[in-house]
């Protein structure tokens, strides 16, 4: 069994009108089955309102399933006794960098999680040092978070989770409020953690270029998982993705358009190099 596994997961909430009377039931997550293996880099894609954030919050027991079960590190999140184990196993980074930093000094914020876990003081310092190092923010440890850029703030938030020594990090749209540089910075950091520390990463996003190097991609729409596979497999279905209000990188789009026009290109081209190689091969053949 994987580190995070969901079976027939359903989450419903009651919609209320202005007076607070129940109006109807909304199903935000619908019959989701996922199985995430330790050490993987997994991306969950979906447009705004597709249910991807609701699903993410289940991985940290911030929300509990209406029906079905989700296990985090073998623990059923719906059992009260498992709560702290679940949160220790899967750390969570949120969208708004300002609204998740508690400390007024970078290093104190990173220490917040271990403090809550009642880790001894000396060990906290060790963890804070290591976590700041791992996200490359050691030089800013005495700074106020307010003076940092968005990307730096998110790296501090990631360090804050790392200091809790989770086996898995869930990032809920960590780049949605960042500029392109901040986005790259955060994704690079996360990928590095996945590679160097073997942390399982679950990245929730709607930016397609961020998922190219993922091991596995889930696409959500209307609360359901509608596509699943390697990035190449998923991007090969360009038209379908567009139907789910998503996009593909320009290189994939161009390859897809050319293929539609009759060029013999493979499906789901993700990198410029692959594209150039294939086009040149076609060109040589047609030249002969």
């Amino acid at each position: 069994m994987g580190i995070i596994k969901a079976s027939k997961l359903i989450y419903e909430y009651i919609k209320r009108d202005e007076e607070g009377n129940p109006e109807g039931v909304n199903r935000a997550v619908d019959q989701v089955d996922i199985d995430i293996q330790p050490g993987q880099f997994v991306a969950i894609l979906g447009h705004n309102g597709s249910g991807k954030s609701t699903l993410a919050k289940h991985m940290n027991a911030l929300l509990l399933p209406t029906e079905g079960t989700i296990w985090v590190g073998d623990k059923d999140t719906s059992l009260e006794d498992n709560l702290w184990d679940v949160r220790r196993t899967a750390g969570m980074v949120f969208q708004n960098p300002d609204n998740q930093i508690i400390g007024t000094v970078v290093e104190e914020d990173v220490g917040f999680g271990p403090e809550n876990l009642a880790v001894p003081t000396q060990e906290i310092w060790k963890r804070v040092d290591r976590s700041l190092e791992a996200v490359g923010m050691t030089a800013y440890r005495y700074h106020s978070p307010n003076k940092l850029s968005g990307g730096q703030k998110q790296r501090v938030a990631i360090a804050g989770i790392m200091a809790m020594k989770p086996r898995c990090i869930v990032l809920d749209e960590p780049t949605a409020m960042l500029d392109p540089n901040g986005r790259k910075e955060v994704i690079r950091t996360v990928r590095e953690l996945n590679r160097a520390e073997g942390i399982t990463v679950i990245l929730i996003t709607h930016y397609m270029e961020e998922v190219i190097e993922a091991d596995r991609v889930y696409v959500m729409d209307g609360g359901r998982v509608v596509m699943e596979g390697t990035p190449k497999e998923v991007f090969a279905r360009t038209e379908e993705l567009k139907g789910y209000r998503l996009d593909v990188p320009q290189v994939t789009e161009l390859a897809w358009e050319l293929k539609k026009a009759g060029l013999p290109l493979t499906d789901g081209i993700l990198t410029i190099d692959d594209f150039v190689d294939e086009i040149l091969a076609i060109h040589q053949k047609s030249g002969k």
Partner: peptide, 28 residues
């Protein structure tokens, strides 16, 4: 845009394509 890099990469490998391409449609 990424398409600029695609065009540049193609040109670098000797593929005969103009430089001033800024959109996917033009590249296509």
């Amino acid at each position: 845009p990424q398409v600029t890099y695609i065009v540049q990469a193609l040109r670098a490998k000797g593929f005969p394509i103009g430089e001033d391409i800024t959109t996917v449609e033009e590249a296509k």
